[in-house]
Design a protein around this nucleic acid. Structure first.
Lengths: 349, 349
DNA sequence: TACTGAACTTTACGCGTGTTAAAAACACCG
DNA sequence: CGGTGTTTTTAACACGCGTAAAGTTCAGTA
């Protein structure tokens, strides 16, 4: 009866709990799967018992023999990237509300680990997976097979045009920042990102299209300085230093394909004593894309466009859970949901 | 026979696989639990079949009825913090090598979620948990009860002196950087961190002790500007701006309790046109603690001490797995393993 | 060849819960 | 009070694999 946690007696199985209440196990089981499915008086009996005893249903056993498991996976290519951790956070909290267990897996940039993570989720009959794919390196045919019997929602970067996808409208976001940059100064050159996924390609194309459309010459400033991998800041710094030192930096304004590149670019400019910003004495403007947590603490604070991570995460969960509702695992015409980005006007451009 | 993945026929249960090979299920089961435990000829038969068929054992079923589960949890207070994501990465890769499934949980700064995460791990009889506790807010008595029947290794911040702990030797790390700062310029004032866990307390104490020891007056520069929460950069910036604007900034050198505070401090200094660094014209030096991924891309690049995250993660896993080896879940005299930090000399101090 | 120990098969139970079908108990209503 | 529809109980099987015991086959040795 005591309110203190430590005095609650621990019950191991649902059977024990049922017996302590004076109900049958199936009834208690029904309660756990949907509290509304039992009579109100029964419900309050169970809930009173849950106050008094310390019982947590065994997640492994719970999900072993369900028609639809209450497990969803989220697989990200890199857990060191703040964008993905933010996404994980949103997905986890949002799925928790619907009573789902979220299994977080990271590929750590390795295609083998990505495959392994998905395999592992499949093995436990996860109800579905939210997948931010590695991109270029991912095993497409394998994913397509998986899609047959496990709902997948892609986020961040899409692999094909058939599967459900939630992400940022790169055309809108790039257009937004290009517009702003052109309005407020000289048209931007584009600092493109290492080819890890289709975001880079999409954004570069969006840039080119937009620039042409408004009558400017598009220019990729780091053309022919190829690099693959997720070490964006380092690449941004190295490439920018090379540009400055070789005297080939012939742009007043640089739009980076993502903020992490911009961090490197800003640090290179600082190292070489190049003032960045839109104030009088600065000769260079730098803008980014994504609005990472640290972007507002850059020196100078980074002007960028903010992806609506909250919306993306919540929508991805919603979409996945919807797919679970409809019984057919693979609907033919899958949804695509793109969210607009917001301009974050700061000091760097 | 085809090498192509998509042509492999998928087998659902271990029984199916055993039958396809012509072995009994228990033998195949033995193989999965320890490939060395079956005859070499049998092993190669199984491995050939695994090439030919697509089978992954069901993780839920596998761990439901084991004496010791092959599941370990890692619980972190904040998944948005690069230190923890790095730790997760190391732990995950290291545990994977030993055949363990790692379940990643984040408290998202909330004590209720932390309790829930641990409860959930306990419910699936996780073999053990690596826990970076929320700290101040954590429910100590609950954790002590848990410790009775589930091995726990604390990392990053300790809760008591009884339980296994792996972390950084804050005395050494602070001593190291204080020494350097005193040697190379005026003695540092200390920018302490919000009271989220014992790291802050330990580091502040280490600072005071060291300063006294070498004959300098210790000074906490943000004394009386209290704040709780994990939003370190923002706090660092706000507090520093206040210090500058009120004219109370009477220090040449600032040692921040962690890098994230330093990011905020640097950005505040930049905003106010205060040059930071150890070059001629700079009047202020700033140093940090942790060496986060972005620290080398700060403007100026942040001088700091690097925690040995790799070593900490690997040791935590090793310690946990060792505890699992010995049968008693709670050894009385638990180990404490502290790792030294390395000085990362950059431009900011 | 007989012997011995290791490896394997057979058989069977267990893990903790989901799920079902039929029977029993209950609540509500006229 | 009897009838009706809803809840709950009972009983049983299922999920996929771990594990144990006892019997069988196999390899290597005396």
């Amino acid at each position: 009866m005591s309110e203190k946690y430590q005095s609650k007696t621990r019950l191991k199985t649902m059977e024990d709990l049922a017996q302590a209440i004076g109900l049958s196990r199936p009834t208690v089981s029904k309660y756990f799967n949907d509290p509304e499915s039992v009579r109100a008086s029964t419900r309050s009996k169970i809930e009173r018992a849950l106050e008094e005893y310390d019982y947590t249903p065994n997640l492994l056993a719970m999900n072993l023999n369900r028609r639809r498991t209450r497990v969803v996976g989220i697989v990200v290519p890199e857990i060191n990237d703040p964008f993905f951790t933010h996404l994980i956070r949103v997905v986890q909290l949002s799925a928790l509300e619907s009573g789902y267990l979220v299994i977080v897996e990271s590929s750590h940039g390795d295609a083998g680990l990505e495959a392994r993570a998905i395999e592992s989720l499949a093995s436990m009959h996860a109800a579905g997976v939210i997948l931010a794919p590695l991109g270029i390196d991912a095993d497409l045919s394998r994913l397509h097979r998986l899609r047959e019997f496990m709902p997948i929602v892609f986020v961040d970067s899409r692999l094909d045009s058939e599967t459900a996808y939630v992400g940022t409208n790169n055309e809108q976001s790039i257009s937004l920042i290009v517009d702003y940059l052109c309005r407020s100064g000289s048209p931007p050159a584009f600092f493109t990102m290492p080819a890890v996924n289709y975001n880079g390609i999409e954004r570069e194309r969006a840039y080119t299209t937009k620039m042409t459309e408004i009558g400017h010459e598009p220019r990729i400033i780091n053309e022919g300085m190829p690099y693959t991998g997720w070490d964006f800041e380092q690449y941004g710094q190295t490439a920018m230093l090379e540009l400055i030192d070789s005297g080939k930096l012939d742009a007043d304004t640089i739009l980076c394909a993502n903020d992490r590149l911009a961090f490197g670019v800003l640090s290179a400019a600082f190292k070489r004593g190049l003032a960045v910003g839109r104030s009088g004495d600065a000769r260079l403007r730098v803008a980014g894309h994504d609005d990472q947590p640290l972007s507002k603490f850059c020196c100078p604070a980074l002007t960028t466009v903010a992806q609506d991570v909250e919306a993306i995460g919540i929508e991805a969960v919603k979409l996945l859970l919807d797919k679970l509702g409809r019984d057919g695992p693979a609907a033919k015409h899958d949804v695509e949901r793109l969210f607009d980005a917001r301009l974050m006007l700061r000091e760097s451009a």
